[in-house]
């Protein structure tokens, strides 16, 4: 009897705090990408809730789905939706803060290059010049409820949609007391809490020059991380390579000397928008922006000449031992 009790006790003990159980993984397609959320079995309901939220956002923000609110806006309709209004107000604010390096109204130019429909082409300079007259956050009119776009203006929230989706996932995880989960929304990462063994989530940053290698790995807890790089999507025409990150100032793919930019911060939308903006800005302007922008964030810049520039906060989370190629690492601080 004593032995049975002891065995029973041991079993209970092993069940409650024994070996960490295999994490569950929920995969789904939304916002034109594959999304994976990793969590424990107990948190599966919360993760499914987050998934439904993301599907709802996809239906609201998609530029390619005719029935979406964004499509209605782009057709010139007035849209009454507080969430969309708030999102576009935030986007306009970040456009101003980044000196136009991040701009959701660059949409018509991106489409002219064929990046919206995957039918790539090189537009003429006249075409680009004409389209650029409709680019600028001034074309977004919103009073907090109702949004309208100026004549000829259209928006694409592809540059912040997944980041915003990760914010929504974070909100659901928090509301439903999820202990630990990792949302990978097509490269937009949100690390909630820790892994079940209490250690931080390990997120590798892809090597922009070698798709099967990494420049390093981040240890993340309650943080968002997003990487932007021209290597993610590009096409070749007439012996030249054109990538998908369009500089709103020129209408051409940004040639800033950077190969990729990773942003780590406490808001998914901000990380998403800044990774694009800093890529467009280039190293010097990005460092200047890091030192002056009022909202805290950290970044990892991989330059075309093979250097990795990290802010001090990113350096503290960084592990270079996983890098397969040799890079020169530099750390910068706020001054």
């Amino acid at each position: 009897m004593k032995r049975t009790l002891a065995a029973l006790f041991l079993t209970l003990l092993l069940c409650s705090c024994g070996a960490p159980r295999e994490p569950e993984s929920v995969q789904f397609f939304a916002m034109d990408t594959l999304m994976t959320i990793t969590c424990t079995e107990e948190d599966l309901d919360a993760v499914h809730h987050a998934m439904r939220e993301i599907a709802r956002l996809d239906a609201l923000l998609s530029r390619t789905r005719e029935e979406s609110a964004v499509s209605a806006l782009n057709r010139g309709e007035t849209v009454e939706d507080a969430e969309l209004a708030a999102l576009l107000t935030r986007a306009a604010k970040l456009c101003k803060a980044t000196g136009g390096a991040f701009d959701v109204t660059v949409a018509p130019v991106v489409s002219a290059w064929g990046f919206t429909a995957d039918e790539y082409r090189v537009p003429t300079q006249e075409e680009i010049t004409a389209l650029l007259t409709h680019v600028g956050a001034g074309g977004i009119g919103s009073d907090g409820e109702v949004t309208t776009l100026a004549e000829g203006v259209s928006v694409d929230l592809g540059g912040i949609g997944k980041g915003y989706a990760s914010d929504c996932a974070a909100r659901v995880f928090k509301e439903e007391n999820v202990s630990g989960a990792l949302a990978a929304l097509g490269g937009n990462i949100y690390a909630h809490g820790t892994k079940s063994d209490g250690s931080p989530w390990r997120v590798a940053v892809r090597d922009p020059f070698d798709g099967s290698a990494y420049v390093g790995a981040l240890s993340l807890t309650d943080a968002f991380a997003v990487t932007s790089g021209g290597y993610e999507r590009y096409f070749e025409s007439g012996g030249k390579t054109y990538h998908h990150i369009i500089d709103p100032a020129t209408g051409y793919p940004a040639e800033s000397g950077l190969a990729s930019v990773t942003v780590v911060c406490g808001e998914g939308l901000l990380a998403d928008a800044l990774s694009t903006a800093l890529y467009v800005m280039g190293e010097a302007k990005a460092i200047e922006f890091y030192r002056t922008f009022e909202e805290p964030f950290d970044m990892i810049l991989v330059t075309q000449d093979g250097r990795v520039v990290l802010t001090e906060g990113a350096a503290a989370l960084w592990d270079t031992s996983v890098a397969e190629h040799s890079y020169q690492y530099e750390t910068i601080n706020k001054l």
Binding site: F29, T33, L34, R52, D58, A59
Partner: peptide, 26 residues
């Protein structure tokens, strides 16, 4: 937004997702 819409939308974006997958893997 019902279950059918969800499933439908998930598979509509599958085509684009294949491309994303290519870069997402490893």
């Amino acid at each position: 937004f019902n279950r059918f819409d969800l499933l439908l939308s998930l598979f509509v974006v599958l085509a684009a997702a294949a491309l994303a997958l290519f870069f997402l893997s490893h």
